[in-house]
Amino acid sequence: MKKIILLSSLLFVAAIFMSISATETIVNNTIPGNDKYIVPEKVQTIIKNKCFDCHNSHSKSIKGKMKLKFDKMSDLKTHKLLAKLDNISESVTDGDMPPKKAIKKYPDLKLTPEEVKTLTDWVGGLIKDIAGE
């Protein structure tokens, strides 16, 4: 019994660490010069819960991986980064992302209007900062 408690608490701690590292991947890699462009926690949570599973460099979704990898955004050139950011804003505004098919299977993936606004506000501000327009 003691062993089980010990084991599960170990797992629990490991899980916490894992979720932190996933979050940090987003924080540290999303934006070049990340000390200047900090990703707000609210945005991180949305990305982590609703986008990251398909849009990371180890994703099983080939299309998702091809279009956008949140953990590799710092590798992008400025123009590519801006294009991706603008696409994020557009696709969540138009309701194209997360894909309808995915939402049908996992209804929790659906973005609430507040979440869409949080994302688009963040993207909009970031684009302004980077592009200066």
Partner: peptide, 12 residues
């Protein structure tokens, strides 16, 4: 078009 949109279209 804004510079950002231009970048996006060129990318596309």
């Amino acid at each position: 078009l804004s510079k950002v949109k231009k970048a996006k279209y060129l990318d596309e």
